[in-house]
Design a protein around this nucleic acid. Structure first.
Length: 547
RNA sequence: GCACCCGUAGCUCAGCUGGAUAGAGCAUCGGUCUUCUAAACCGAGGGUCGCGCGUUCGAAUCGCGCCGGGCGCACCA
């Protein structure tokens, strides 16, 4: 209907030109929006205001001429409002017809047609496998997986990827830390190294190694022992990571190991940059001339000792991503990495790639609140609350909803007490409750033999119209949210859907009214439940049948 | 000093590719359960959109400059 209306407005403008009331001019794009208040109709356009310059007339005059020429098909009335908006009021038939089509689409309603674009890659979390995931990673996991679900619903072909930093210094530190704990367990007086990891999970790993194999590694040369511990620790940490993510309803298509970049792909990337004249040697190291591509300083890619930097691996990684044919690559990073964007884009440009194909989404920091107070990080280990502990305490549904409902650009105060509370304060329950209420109605309808009907013309209450319109808006909301990479909009849409339903539910009885009306209301409720389910699925939150 | 994010109701935040009287939830106050889940609904109050200047017919939204908070500025990741 929206497209039809836009076409009708264009046609009216062209007719106006043909009639000589408007001068020959390029037509502005027709934008239609749902007005801020429902008294303002079903759709509104600012087209008359946009055209004021081109048509040399006041917006209200233009609007008047347009209204006189617009096809009335499906439009009950059109009015000029405010500075020159045209408000359109659709006929009831059009609104009922929209509901009918939504119902016919079934569970797929909310999924948009395939965009037939090259694949999009979303890389998120990618935390180092050196310890458990924390709440900050939780935000990345929730937003990233919701974004993947959202883009898929909007018709994009998406691949979700986790980059495993299983090479380099931090993994050596992991091995050294496990080694120190192992030696401690064997009765030796050693300290965890300065750069080591002090978490309890490292002690556990060491303990498991000793339980299985005893003291046998003591007699081994240290380098050999470290190599063994490195692999043991890595596989344990990675398994734990995957477990945490799975428990959080997060799935990946590809687990990409950094090791597979070393040394060939890293060397190839450096060679390519060298061939382009973007590498020079200074102080024994190889430098990328990134300042030529917008960075504020040049960056070392190969250290004086011959070891590649993290950036070198990352350059090779992004080169590999684009070679895999993605039309667009989206990285979710913590906001503390924002300074890194510029150099990665510079490197892509230096290799002759298109940095516009890379979008880095930054997620601002998360702080936990309990009893109104910030939860402090542990001084000893430098660690905050783990994601597993958070899930344990508030549940996956509440945690995911809270992480996704805010804009990623805003810092998030995660109120643990609120997430746990089973009351109206808690937006997760509010949405889920609407779904459970509908499921309950359907259970009773089944008992009494009430069936859904399509006598939609009997739906005349204001709250019924509001609900139908929300349902009809939903696919556009999916489109917008995907275009803006903004899964938080889906949380909002779900909440608004629930609100419209609760309002309807308290005004209109379903059971016990005359059967045709009851059936139509049941169908409306059923469709509402489907849309809520669809939105909650994108958010990775369950849609319970009972609460 | 440079880069990025934020500053909107008492609190937490939407709205930001410019548009109508700036919205929601919570909190506060007042109503609503003999009938489908009251984890709900209805109503009320509550705002110099951080400050200033500019662009525009029109600015919370765009530009510039300040102020405040956060986060970074490695041959760490």
């Amino acid at each position: 209907m929206k497209e039809k209306l836009a076409a009708a407005i264009r046609a009216a403008a062209e007719q106006g030109i043909a009639d000589g009331v408007f001068p020959e001019a390029e037509l502005a794009a027709v934008e239609l929006e749902v007005p801020p208040k429902k008294e303002m109709g079903d759709f509104a356009t600012n087209f008359a205001m946009k055209s004021a310059k081109a048509f040399h007339k006041s917006p209200r005059q233009i609007a008047e001429e347009l209204i006189a020429r617009i096809a009335r098909d499906g439009i009950d009335r059109a009015e000029i409002a405010g500075p020159g908006f045209i408000n359109f009021y659709l006929t009831k038939d059009v609104i009922y017809d929209g509901l009918r089509k939504a119902i016919e689409a079934g569970e797929a309603y909310g999924n948009l047609p395939n965009k037939n674009l090259p694949k999009v890659q979303v890389e998120y979390v990618s935390a180092n496998p050196t310890g458990p995931l924390h709440v900050g990673h939780g935000r990345g996991a929730a937003v990233g997986s919701a974004l993947v679900n959202l883009l898929r619903a909007a018709g994009y072909d998406v691949e979700a990827e986790y980059y495993i930093n299983d090479a380099g210094n931090q993994i050596d530190h992991l091995a050294e830390s496990v080694n120190a704990r192992y030696l401690q367990l064997c009765g030796q007086d050693v300290e965890v190294p300065e750069d080591g990891y002090r978490g309890q999970d490292i002690v556990e790993t060491a303990r498991r190694i000793r339980e299985k194999d005893g003291d046998k590694y003591l007699s081994m040369p240290e380098a050999e022992r470290l190599a063994i511990f490195k692999e043991r620790a890595l596989s344990e940490k990675l398994a734990a990571l995957k477990e945490d993510l799975a428990a959080f309803n997060v799935q990946y298509d590809v687990w990409f190991s950094e090791r597979t970049l070393h040394p060939d792909k890293v060397n190839a990337a450096v060679e390519k940059l060298r061939a382009n004249g973007n590498i020079y040697e200074k102080d024994g190291a190889l430098w990328l001339r990134s300042t030529d591509y917008g960075d504020d300083k040049d960056r070392v890619v190969i250290r004086a000792g011959g070891e590649p930097t993290y950036l070198a691996a990352d350059i090779a990684y992004h080169k590999d991503k684009f070679e895999r044919g993605f039309g667009r690559v989206i990285n979710l990073w913590g906001a503390d990495h924002h300074g890194y964007i510029c150099r990665v884009k510079a490197a892509i440009k230096a290799m002759g790639g298109d940095p516009e194909k890379l979008t880095v989404m930054l997620l601002q920091m998360v702080s936990l609140l309990r009893g109104g107070e910030a939860v402090k990080m542990s001084k000893r280990t430098g660690e905050s609350v783990t994601l597993a502990e958070l899930i344990e305490e508030v549940g996956t549904d509440a945690a995911r909803y809270f992480f996704v409902m805010r804009s990623p650009d805003s810092q998030l105060d995660f109120d643990i007490d609120l997430a746990k509370s089973q009351s109206s304060e808690n937006p997760v329950y509010y949405v889920q409750y609407a779904h459970a209420r509908i499921a309950s109605v359907f259970r009773q309808a089944a008992e009494t033999g009430l069936k859904e009907s399509d006598a939609f013309a009997l739906l005349t209450d204001e709250s019924e119209f509001d609900l139908i319109k929300k349902i009809e808006e939903y696919p556009r909301e999916v489109e917008k949210a995907a275009a803006d990479l903004a899964p938080q909009r889906i949380a909002r849409a779900a909440h608004e859907m629930a609100s419209a339903f609760h309002s309807f539910y308290s005004r209109c009885r379903i059971m016990g009214v005359e059967p045709e009306l009851a059936g139509a209301r049941l169908a409306l409720a059923g469709k509402t439940a489907q849309v809520i389910r669809h939105a909650l699925h994108i958010l990775g939150v369950s849609a319970p049948e009972k609460m």
